[in-house]
Nucleic acid binder design. Structure first.
Length: 827
RNA sequence: GCCCGGAUGGCGGAACUGGUAGACGCAAAGGACUUAAAAUCCUUCGACCCAACGGUCGUGCGGGUUCGAUUCCCGCUCCGGGCACCA
C-alpha cells in the first residue's frame, strides 16, 4: 500500500482542474444555474485561517451542488483599493499599485492551495483601471439620475486615517472608525454622497430573500423607520415665524409644556430675546465645542437654555416656552421637538431640572377617570398600547391607535400638520481624502463650476508616479499632472476632484463584474455602453447563495442591495435584489478563545498547516469544528482527528482485502443499511450547511466499514468505498480525486460524477431499540422488529424481567407507547 | 435602556416536529505491536454511591406544563453581538 502524501497529490489536481477548465461557467440549458458567491478578500498579502474558514465550506457547497446537477459559477477576485496599500507606500516607499499586485500574486498562490473550484478566468481586481472605469461610469449615471450629489455638511472624520467616513463606518457609542478603531470627529466639508435614502422603503422589504433574521433585523434597525406626525408651531409675537416638530406621539400633544430646538437650529438667533441672548450664545458655543472634543466623557445630563420666546400649541392655543438643548439632534427629524414631560423620560428629566409643569394627558386604560399625579421618573407613562387620552378636550377617552389617527387627521384638516415617516439612515457619504481609490470623475472649472468628466474620457486614471508624504495626505492634491485639466464645457483650465470613492463602491458591484470579463482595455466608453452582456447577466444573475461575515450587515450588505436597485433603474439588471440566500459564517478564534491577532500571538497560519497536513485535512477540520455559523476556537490537537480520518480513507481506498465477491449476509446487510443511511444524512446535512455532522456521519460509516470489513464481499466493499469517495468529494476534493482515478479511471473527475441517491427501503432498520421507562425513568431496553404493534410492545414491556421489580406492589395506571421509540409505564 | 443570539463532560460539539442526553472528534488512562519511538490497533472515559448487580444526580439558576423537558411556557443570572438622548 502506498502512503498518503497530500503534497504529492494536491498540487497535481489543482493544476489539472484549472487546466481542464472543468469549473469554468458554461451554460447548459438543461441544468439549473447556481451562482455561488463568497465575499472577496482584501489583498493584505497573507491568507488568514479566517479566509479558509469562509471559503473552504463555500467551496464544498459549490462542489456538492455541481454533483447534484447544477451548473455552478463560483468566482473569486480582489478588493484591491484601500488604505493599507498607502500606508505601505509611505513606510516602504513603494507605489500602492506595486504593493497591491505583489500581494495579489502571493494570495493567488495561497488561494490555489485551498483547491477551490474557483472560476479563475473570471477573476476581477478592483484597482484595475478596466474595472474602476465602470465604477466611474456608474457614478456618472447616478449623477445624471440625481442619485449622486455634493453637499456641504457636518461629516465624520477619522484623524488617524485622514479621511471622512460614511455613517455606517462609524461604530458604536464611542463612534470609532471602522478601519482603525480610533474615535472620529465632526467636520464641515463638501462631500459626495449617494442617495441610498431614495430606496429606503424597498430596502426594508426582504420578501423573497432567505437571509438570516439577524441581518434583516440589523438592517431594519439601521434604517430606523418611524411613523409620526410633523406639525408647525407659531412663535408668539412673531407673526411670520414658525418651526416644525416631528413626533411619533401626537396623542400626547395636549401635554406639551415646552419645546426644544437643537442648538444649531436655524431659528434660534431670530427668536431669542435680548435678555436671553448672552446665555443662548454661550450654550451654543459650548455645545459646538462639546461635539468636537469631549464626546467620550459626555454625560447624559440634560441641560439647556430658555430662548425667551414662546410657541403656540396649535391644538389648544396654549403658549409654551421654547428652549434650546443638546439632547435634541439637529440631524434627525426637524431638529426640534414638542416636549411632553409626563410621557417622555428625557423631557421629564429636563422639566424637573427647570421646574416646568408635567401634566398627565394619557392614563392606563384600567385607571380611566382617576388621573395619577405622575411626579416621578418611574411614573412616566410611555406605553402606547393600553393608554387612553385624558385632559385633551375633544379627544378624551381615545385609545391607541385611534388616538394617533384622530389627532393626525385633525392636524391635517386644520392644515398645520401631516403624517410623516422619518428614517435614521443617512445618505451614503462616498468621498475619501485618500489616493488609493477610484477617482471621482468630475472637474471644477472657475467659470462653469463642477463638470462631470465625459464618458468618452473614462477612466480617470490614478498616476503611477505619486509622491507619498509622511503626513498621510493624499498625493493627488499635489500631483500637477493629475490635478490640472481642461473643462469639458468651456475648454478652459480646470482642476480635478482629488477625493476618491469609498472602497465599498468597488464591492457594491463586483459580483456583476465577475460576469463581465469582456471589458476591453482601451475601449472608449459612452453613455450607451453596457458593462456586461445582458444575456449572460440574465442567465446567471442574481447570486443564488452568498456567504460572508456578519460584520458587513449594515455596510457592504446594505450598499450591495442599494447598487442592485440603482443598476436595475439604469436598465442594466432585470432583478432588484443581488442575492437570494445569505449565510453568515462565524469567526474562528485563537486557541485561547480570543479573537486572533498578531499582538495576542494566537494567529494560526494556514500555509504551515497545509504543508504539514495537506489542504484536505485543513478543510475537513475547519468544517468539523462545529456549526459553520457559530465559529469556534482553534484546537491545535484537534486537526489530528481530521488527519487520521483521511489517512484511514486512504487506507480503505488503497488496501487490497482478499475476499470473495460476496460475504456474510448479516454483515452485508448492516453495511448496506449504514451506507444508505449515510447517503441520506450527508445529503441532508450538506444541503443545510451542516458540514460538522456530515463529517461525523462519514466517520461513523468509516468505523462500521472497518469493523465489518473482512466479513463483506468485494462487490459491496467496492460499492461502499466508491460511495464514500463521492460523499467525501466536496469536502476533501484532492484525496477523493486521486482515489477515484485509481478505482474508476475511465469515468472522469470525481467532481463531475452524479451525487449518490439513497434507497429508503435499504436504509430502513429491521430492528429498533425500544426504551422502557417506569414513571419516565429508563429501566430497560428491548430489541424489537421495526413496526411492532402497540399491544405487543406493551405486553413485552410489562413482561420484562427488569421491569417486573418496579411494578410490584404498585398498580399500572397508564401505559404510553410511542411506536419504534419507547414505552412509558405510569404506576 | 431596547433588539437579537448563546450557555450541554477536561475540550470542540451531537440530539429529527417533547421520547435512550453526551453522536463524532480531541485530550487523558490502560493494553497490543515494536529493541525503542512514531504511526496503527484494542479497551475505558459526566459526577457520586457500590465488591458487583445496580442505584442516585446531571444540559447556566428558580418555578411551571407534561406520562416524559437540553427541547415548550414564566421569572432570573452570566456571556457575545447590534442599536441608543432618534423625539
Amino acid at each position: 500500500m502506498q502512503e498518503y502524501v497530500p503534497s504529492e497529490i494536491e498540487s497535481k489536481w489543482q493544476r489539472h482542474w484549472e487546466e481542464s477548465g472543468q469549473f469554468d461557467p458554461e451554460m447548459h440549458p438543461e441544468r439549473p444555474k447556481f451562482y455561488m458567491l463568497t465575499m472577496l478578500p482584501y489583498p493584505s498579502g497573507d491568507l488568514h485561517i479566517g479566509h479558509w474558514y469562509a471559503m473552504a465550506p463555500s467551496d464544498a457547497y459549490a462542489r456538492f451542488l455541481k454533483m447534484r446537477g447544477h451548473e455552478v459559477f463560483f468566482p473569486i477576485g480582489f478588493d484591491a483599493f484601500g488604505l493599507p496599500a498607502e500606508n505601505a507606500a509611505i513606510k516602504h516607499n513603494i507605489h500602492p499599485k506595486t504593493w497591491t499586485y505583489q500581494n495579489i500574486e502571493r494570495m493567488r498562490g495561497q488561494l490555489r492551495t485551498m483547491g477551490n473550484m474557483f472560476a479563475w478566468k473570471n477573476e476581477v481586481v478592483s484597482c484595475d483601471p478596466d474595472y474602476y472605469k465602470w465604477s466611474q461610469w456608474f457614478f456618472l449615471r447616478m449623477l445624471e439620475m440625481g442619485l449622486a450629489y455634493r453637499e456641504y455638511a457636518p461629516v465624520d472624520f477619522c484623524n488617524h486615517c485622514q479621511t471622512t467616513l460614511a455613517r455606517e463606518q462609524v461604530w458604536g457609542e464611542e463612534r470609532l472608525c471602522e478601519r482603525c478603531e480610533n474615535p472620529v470627529v465632526k467636520k464641515e466639508l463638501n462631500q459626495w454622497k449617494l442617495r441610498i435614502t431614495n430606496y429606503v422603503e424597498e430596502l426594508l422589504d426582504f420578501s423573497g430573500l432567505e437571509w438570516p433574521e439577524k441581518v434583516k433585523a440589523m438592517q431594519t434597525n439601521w434604517i430606523g423607520r418611524s411613523e409620526g406626525v410633523e406639525f408647525a408651531l407659531k412663535v408668539a409675537g412673531h407673526e411670520d415665524c414658525a418651526f416644525r416638530v416631528f413626533t411619533t406621539r401626537p396623542d400626547t400633544v395636549f401635554g406639551m409644556t415646552f419645546c426644544v430646538l437643537a442648538p444649531e437650529h436655524g431659528l434660534v438667533e431670530q427668536i431669542t430675546t435680548l435678555k436671553q441672548r448672552e446665555a443662548v450664545r454661550a450654550y451654543r458655543e459650548a455645545a459646538a465645542r462639546k461635539d468636537e472634543i469631549e464626546r467620550m466623557a459626555e454625560s447624559r445630563e440634560k441641560d439647556g437654555v430658555f430662548t425667551g420666546a414662546c410657541a403656540i400649541n396649535p391644538m389648544n392655543g396654549a403658549e409654551v416656552p421654547i428652549w434650546i438643548a443638546d439632547y435634541v439632534m439637529a440631524s434627525y427629524g426637524t431638529g426640534a421637538i414638542m416636549a411632553v414631560p409626563a410621557h417622555d423620560e428625557r423631557d421629564f428629566i429636563f422639566a424637573r431640572k427647570y421646574g416646568l409643569p408635567t401634566p398627565t394627558v394619557i392614563v392606563p386604560e384600567a385607571l380611566r377617570g382617576a388621573v395619577p399625579d405622575g411626579d416621578s421618573l418611574e411614573a412616566v407613562l410611555t406605553d402606547k398600547v393600553g393608554s387612553v387620552m385624558v385632559n385633551s378636550p375633544g379627544f378624551d377617552g381615545l385609545r391607541w391607535p385611534q388616538s394617533f389617527d384622530a389627532v393626525a387627521t385633525h392636524m391635517e384638516r386644520e392644515g398645520f400638520g401631516e403624517r410623516q415617516v422619518n428614517y435614521r439612515i443617512r445618505d451614503w457619504l462616498i468621498s475619501r481624502q485618500r489616493m488609493w481609490g477610484t477617482p471621482i470623475p468630475v472637474v471644477y472649472c472657475n467659470d462653469c463650476g463642477m463638470q462631470p468628466v465625459p464618458y468618452e474620457q473614462l477612466p480617470v486614471e490614478l498616476p503611477d508616479d505619486a509622491q507619498f508624504k509622511p503626513t498621510g495626505e493624499s498625493p493627488l492634491k499635489h500631483h500637477q499632472g493629475f490635478l490640472q485639466t481642461t473643462c469639458p464645457q468651456c475648454g478652459g483650465a480646470a482642476e480635478r476632484e482629488t477625493d476618491t470613492m469609498d472602497t465599498f463602491i468597488c464591492s457594491s458591484w463586483y459580483y456583476y463584474g465577475y460576469l463581465a470579463p469582456y471589458w476591453q482595455h482601451g475601449e472608449t466608453l459612452s453613455k450607451e455602453s453596457l458593462p456586461w452582456d445582458m444575456e449572460t447577466m440574465r442567465a446567471w444573475g442574481p447570486v443564488d447563495q452568498y456567504t460572508g461575515g456578519i460584520e458587513h450587515a449594515t455596510m457592504h450588505l446594505l450598499y450591495f442591495r442599494f447598487y442592485t436597485k440603482a443598476l436595475a433603474d439604469m436598465g442594466l439588471l432585470d432583478f432588484r435584489e443581488p442575492a437570494t440566500r445569505l449565510f453568515n459564517q462565524g469567526t474562528i478564534l485563537g486557541e485561547d478563545h480570543e479573537k486572533m491577532s498578531k499582538s495576542r500571538g494566537n494567529v494560526v497560519n494556514p500555509d504551515d498547516l497545509v504543508q504539514r497536513y495537506g489542504s484536505d485535512t485543513v478543510r475537513m477540520y475547519l468544517m468539523f469544528l462545529g456549526p459553520w455559523d457559530a465559529g469556534a476556537p482553534w484546537n491545535p490537537h484537534g486537526i489530528e482527528g481530521a488527519s487520521r480520518f483521511l489517512r484511514s480513507v486512504w487506507a480503505l481506498g488503497t488496501q487490497e482485502i482478499p475476499v470473495g465477491p460476496s460475504g456474510d449476509a448479516d454483515a452485508e446487510q448492516k453495511v448496506r443499511r449504514a451506507l444508505h443511511q449515510t447517503i441520506k444524512k450527508v445529503t441532508d446535512d450538506l444541503q443545510h450547511f451542516r458540514f460538522n455532522t456530515a463529517i461525523a456521519a462519514l466517520m461513523s460509516f468509516r468505523n462500521q466499514l472497518r469493523s465489518g470489513g473482512e466479513r463483506i464481499g468485494s462487490e459491496l466493499r467496492e460499492e461502499a468505498i466508491r460511495t464514500l469517495l463521492l460523499l467525501l468529494a466536496p469536502l476533501a476534493p484532492h484525496l477523493t480525486e486521486e482515489l477515484w482515478q485509481r478505482c474508476c479511471p475511465d469515468s472522469g473527475s470525481v467532481h463531475i460524477q452524479p451525487w449518490p441517491e439513497h434507497d429508503e427501503a435499504l436504509a430502513a432498520d429491521a430492528l429498533v431499540t425500544l426504551v422502557v421507562q417506569v414513571n419516565g425513568k429508563l429501566r430497560d431496553r428491548l430489541e424489537v422488529p421495526t413496526g411492532m404493534g402497540r399491544e405487543e410492545v406493551e405486553r413485552l414491556a410489562l413482561e420484562s424481567e427488569k421491569i417486573q421489580p418496579h411494578l410490584s406492589e404498585r398498580s399500572v395506571r397508564k401505559v404510553i407507547v410511542v411506536p419504534d421509540r419507547l414505552v412509558n409505564i405510569v404506576v
